[in-house]
Design a protein around this nucleic acid. Sequence first.
DNA 1: GGGTCCAATTTGTAAAGACAAATGCCGTGG
DNA 2: CCACGGCATTTGTCTTTACAAATTGGACCC
Lengths: 232, 232
Amino acid sequence: MADTPIYQLVKDALRARIESGALVTGDMVPGEEQLAADFNCSRLTAHRALRELADEGLVVRKRRAGTQVAARGSGVLIRIPSVREEIEGRGVAYRYELLACRHAVPGAAISEALSVDAKGRHLNVVGRHWAGNRVFQHDTRWINLIQVPAALEADFSTVSANQWLLENVPSSSVDHEISALAADARAATALEVEPGTALLRIERVSHLGQNAITHAAMLHPGALFSLKSERR
Amino acid sequence: MADTPIYQLVKDALRARIESGALVTGDMVPGEEQLAADFNCSRLTAHRALRELADEGLVVRKRRAGTQVAARGSGVLIRIPSVREEIEGRGVAYRYELLACRHAVPGAAISEALSVDAKGRHLNVVGRHWAGNRVFQHDTRWINLIQVPAALEADFSTVSANQWLLENVPSSSVDHEISALAADARAATALEVEPGTALLRIERVSHLGQNAITHAAMLHPGALFSLKSERR
DNA sequence: GGGTCCAATTTGTAAAGACAAATGCCGTGG
DNA sequence: CCACGGCATTTGTCTTTACAAATTGGACCC
């Protein structure tokens, strides 16, 4: 504590003023020169504190106009934990079960999401993640074999497709979509729940440059899928 | 482009090597001195590039051990848009409807989430957000009047509780929880959907220091609630 | 051979100086 | 009175220099 960096002290002080309401949206924050004088540090140190606060979205900076407190919360950042971490973090035994791994031609919806017109050349991997004796997640995945030929050599019975892809395939961007739906007969069987049970569905498409790499549809049985907001 | 900062050029170059797979998890990234030489810049400039990449989670840095490519994707950041932005972004008319605004004592579940033992002294605001002629979100909110006495003066028929709180009440942390559930009779009526329809539920608790400020339960009728991953 | 300690390497923070870029403000001129 | 333009202010980036902190690798000793 004796050793906290100065820029961190400045950040904390300003953050406290903002979070306590001493400074509210639109208020001017002291400039770099002023902070340097107040905290008896160089302008660079004050600059770093303000820049990082701006990166975090707490303040908005404009040349000549100065720095002011940002309008808060047009949106919120949330973290999707990895399935394994989530389950083991609850103190429940984790197990991955491979249900299918075969070449197949994706349906229209998946093809569109992957934006491939080339039919075929895809690997379809289906598995379940167990939390104790309950199905926690059902995972249907399509892997573009043109982009990821190495997937043919992978053994998805020992490693989940998700984990293998994370460790072996680079990606430049990932898109997610979260929705709720009622379980139809097939989903109910797969998740071992009653038909009509509410499910949480997460769809994930990952890209490398312009090309779609994988499409994943993950289903969670109704109950809790807890997402905690990011703290920065 | 002639004017891109040097540290940004370094970042982009390294990011490209990582995202393309030229550098994979565990590989060593050139050190600060090396990068400074390669890009003909000062060590501080190289340092900033590496530090920001580390902030973004792409690399891990350790003194003496150097910098290496981080294991990717234990988690993903996702953005929850504001309701109004989301609806208007779809080109649909947005409308907020206040259903109730009264003093009340929250039930056991809410009290626990708010971690208040003091019964009473809460304001309960219920409203609906419309997207065209369909209910997009039903919002049940509890406001701790001890922490936010100013809420008594607010006119929630013209401003949604969410918006008013964002603009007028500082907060130090916010927790979220997302889940799926089937609509019971009451929820079905409130959202104007069939009973049993799958709903997406977002629960939000905001704090100021140790004290809980508000509790919000937001229900979205089944269909799509689209969350896009954050791009950094 | 193994354990322990030192030192070199690498990252982290900071200062002071310098210049560039953007832009609000004010003064001048029409 | 309004419009335009220059100036001063504020943020943004970069360099050089300096020292602190952490940790690994090897040297050295037992």
